[in-house]
Design a protein around this nucleic acid. Structure first.
Length: 554
RNA sequence: GCGCCUGUAGCUCAGCCCGGAGAGAGCAACGGACUUCUAAUCCGUAGGUCGCAGGUUCGAAUCCUGCCAGGCGUACCA
């Protein structure tokens, strides 16, 4: 609709300049917006004000000229007016809105999809929690955001891969092994001083218990380092298994689970370090190897190999990111917790040093989640091992509610997640508000079918029966979906979809309460079924992008 | 100290990228609507110097600068 108006205005400008009423030299881009207030029409343009100074004419005069030259051959415009300092407001005929419904029906589940990505290969890496303990609520937010961003990008024509990076190497894994081994010895009767830096959670005991059942006392007879290694691998595998299950329950699936250790095993980390040494990007100082990240805007250089010869996490991260581009991704997006933001300059530096552009690397920083219950903060302490896991939350409030709530905020905004609120089935909790629309419409369509009225097709004359303001409002709301999706993809902001859905749901509930879909007039009933089926299609479509189910019944 | 993020109604937040007309939702408050397709719903009332101060502009919540407040980060940890 917007495009059509732009064309009309463009043609009007051409006409006017052909007649000499406007200066042809400066023709700006035509902006058409949907005003916030209904009284300002369905669409408005500020073109007259933009042109005022270059045309040396008052804006209202220009507006008059444009309107006089409009050629509304398609009979779309009901009324135009000049308002305020020089806006041109357009009121679109209801008869021009109605045919738009066909577009929704034609495209169906693909309505709103586009090809702005043009097959561009993009990787979204998210969650990537260390395999040293179960996922907690914060990871859930990252999972919801990452998954949804991936869905939206794919819907817009990007070739998306979702990846989980497993930090199965390095010190924290060794600590994990030690923790399990100590608990294992404890189970077998040894008196154990359990150090503070070890993982305290009960899940460590469970893993040790499992190991004892499987291997008996065998580990005690091994070399201690070997035993700890074995414990570490066993525990990491076990925990990753649990993480996979939790994520599946949350509706999040990855195309690839990428192991950090594999970068060492394949020699990639070494190769990368050697390469950068040769090029001078890595140098030696005070016995350690440093990466010259300051060349790329970082505030100080960073260590990649410590004095003791061990590599840092950053070393494998350089190799990891290089590997992503080697695998053919043109753009790489990392979803991180906000507490890692200090890490961005150095990874960006490594990407540039590897020969890629800084625009090819993006980080979505997800702010932290405050877990509440009835307004009171829930104690969360990783050290003591007392925390509410993502799985606990899913069990208590359900995956749909959790995902939706995670996506009701811009990811850069801290989020209060209230368990009591998430369970409420009221307007406090918008997920049900939106899902309810889907269920209600399903029920209506079923009733319509029983009466022998179909919802999938509709003749033009019948469709013309849609004239109620609430019906047009619904169509207008749906008309904005493609743009919402495009903005969601361009900015990687799933919450735009969430807000769109709440808005569309609101328009539907209002309509539902005022008008009867299955009206006595069978033609009108059919037209209205055609309308609400389109709403249902879009609701399902949007919920799917968010990873939330669209129930037939509630 | 430096860096990143945030500051909009009593509360929780959209809007800011790309400047437009009286700044929007939901909750809470108050008043209404179920013998009718699902009341997990709807309608109405009330509520705001968009943190503060400058600047750019015909026009600033939106762009620029400075300040204030809160969160996070600032390791040869991950």
């Amino acid at each position: 609709m917007k495009k059509t108006l732009k064309k009309l205005i463009g043609a009007a400008l051409e006409n006017a300049s052909a007649k000499g009423e406007l200066n042809h030299a400066t023709m700006p881009d035509i902006e058409v917006e949907a005003p916030k207030v209904d009284t300002h029409g369905d669409f408005s343009t500020n073109i007259a004000m933009v042109m005022a100074s270059s045309q040396k004419m008052p804006p209202r005069k220009i507006a008059e000229t444009i309107i006089a030259n409009l050629d509304d051959a398609g009979q779309i415009i009901a009324k135009t007016e000049i308002a305020g300092p020089g806006f041109i407001n357009f009121f679109v005929k209801t008869s021009a809105w109605v045919p738009f419904l066909r577009k929704v029906h034609e495209k169906g589940a693909r309505y709103g999809a586009s090809n702005i990505g043009q097959g561009h290969k993009i990787q979204v890496e998210f969650v990537s929690s260390n395999p040293t303990g179960p996922l907690h609520v914060g990871h859930g937010r990252g999972a919801a955001v990452g998954d949804s961003v991936g869905n939206i990008l794919a819907f817009c024509g990007y070739d998306v891969q979702k990846e989980y990076y497993i930090n199965d190497s390095g010190r924290q894994i060794h600590t994990l092994g030690t923790s399990v081994f100590l608990r294992y010895r404890e189970i077998l009767g040894a008196a154990v001083q359990f150090p503070e830096e070890c993982y305290q959670g009960d899940y460590i005991k469970d893993i040790a218990l499992g190991l004892e059942r499987e291997k008996g006392r065998a580990l005690l007879e091994m070399d201690e380092n070997e035993a700890i290694d074995l414990c570490a691998r066993h525990a990491a595998d076990f925990i990753i298994g649990g993480i996979r299950e939790d994520l599946s329950a949350f509706g999040v699936f990855f195309d690839e689970w990428f192991s950090e250790q594999s970068l060492y095993d394949s020699g990639k980390v070494d190769t990368v370090i050697q390469g950068f040494k040769a090029s001078g990007a890595i140098y030696e100082k005070e016995g350690a190897q440093w990466f010259r990240t300051t060349d790329y805007g970082d505030e100080k250089d960073r260590v990649v190999v410590r004095k003791n010869g061990q590599t840092t996490y950053f070393a494998s991260d350089i190799a990891y990111h290089q590997d992503k581009y080697d695998r053919g991704f043109e753009t790489v997006i990392d979803v991180w917790g906000a507490d890692h933001h200090g890490y961005i300059p150095r990874v960006t530096a490594s990407v540039e040093a590897s020969g890629y552009k800084r625009e090819q690397f993006g980080v979505i920083l997800v702010q932290l989640v405050n877990l509440l219950r009835g307004g009171e903060p829930v104690a969360m302490s990783t050290r003591s091992g007392e925390f509410v896991t993502l799985n606990d939350v899913i069990q208590e409030v359900g995956g749909d509610a959790a995902r939706f709530i995670f996506l009701t905020r811009h990811y850069e905004s801290p989020l209060d997640f209230d368990l009591e609120l998430a369970k409420k089935k009221t307007n406090d909790n918008p997920v049900y508000y939106v899902q309810y629309v889907h269920a209600r419409i399903s029920s209506i369509i079923e009733k319509g079918r029983e009466k022998g009225i179909q919802s999938e097709a509709c003749e033009d004359e019948v469709l013309a029966k849609l004239t109620q303001p609430e019906e047009i409002a619904l169509i207008k709301a749906m008309n904005r979906y493609p743009e919402t999706i495009r903005l969601g993809a361009e900015n990687m902001e799933p919450h735009r979809v969430t807000y769109f859905l709440m808005n569309l749901a609101s328009a539907f509930h209002s309509y539902y309460n005022k008008h009867r879909v299955l009206a006595d007039d069978p033609d009108l009933a059919q037209a209205r079924l055609f309308l609400v089926l389109a709403v249902k299609t879009i609701i399902r479509n949007g919920l799917t992008l968010l990873g939330v189910s669209a129930p037939e019944k509630m």
